[in-house]
Amino acid sequence: MSDLLEVGDLHVHHGKRPIVDGVDLALARGEALGLAGESGCGKTTTALALMKLLPASLEQSGRVTLRLEGAEEPINIEKRTEAGMQLVRWRHISLIFQGAMNSLDPVQRIERQFAEAIRLHEPEARSDDVRERIAELLRTVGLTPGLGRRYAHQLSGGQRQRVMIALALACRPSLVIADEPTTALDVVMQAQVLQLLERLREELGLALILISHDLGVLAETCDRIAVMYAGRIVESGPVERVFATPQHPYTKLLLDSLPVIGGERGLAPPIPGGPPDPSDPPPGCRFNPRCPFAAERCSAEDPALREVAPWQAAACHFAPWSEWPATTGAEAGSAR
């Protein structure tokens, strides 16, 4: 069966400066894909491009194809006009973004905001049905329907985040993109929200793109993971494989920096420096100036993302790595 979403050679430019530089993605129905990477790597830009929600100053190119179940023709998002996109957004793909809980309308009751979202796509819906749908949506995310009568400021942060998730589900989309949905939340609330997303995925057959810089969150929630660096995907594969046997030095170092409770305490040596500006990447491999394993070739040739193990791809000249050489303790603490 063909994939729900296919992204081919996605580029996003700001004038002449690339921000996303050739991203390919595929997502099956009901699958959860994690998009990892540090801020500025292009993960949010990628997500917005999938919904054509980029600000006018950014230009996108590349294929974004959505194949809905039962539909004869795929939806070619890249060819859609703004009017055409309005039929897709919320109805087929919806977005929960970071700090979304602060984007509820402060002067309208919660239920009114739901009704608007539902009516946008089903103008004919009867009031009774709409009311029933809202109650059901609120129950789905573990809130009592009575909460619909309230205003946003009368809800706690966790409740607001749940309302946003329910809103994203209002039109029964096939794909939900969640951009750092739990970053502003505490551990307990974060675990509750992640468990909720997982349950919804099971119950509604929802596909999910989860964007997070927290690899722990992705490990728990996703089937597959793609790691982005400076506007590109540098590694992708099934979560178990990528976590057990990372094939890109960047992934490897990110994973090493995670504390494993019960193991050795202390700090792993930080990756020196910071990520480059995607519009002005270093020559060769974009990670080479920070890579402890870099060789001469790495600053000369740009490695392509290629399959280096079953289902697992990495953009590194030396992949597959069967064994990682010991790092010589990355230089610590420098701001360069």
Binding site: S39, H213, L253, L254, S257, P269, P272, G274, P275, A332
Partner: peptide, 15 residues
């Protein structure tokens, strides 16, 4: 802060 930056800051504090 992001993963790599946060590790750098924590390293500074610990040293």
């Amino acid at each position: 802060l992001d993963t790599s930056v946060r590790a750098q800051i924590l390293t500074v504090l610990l040293s």
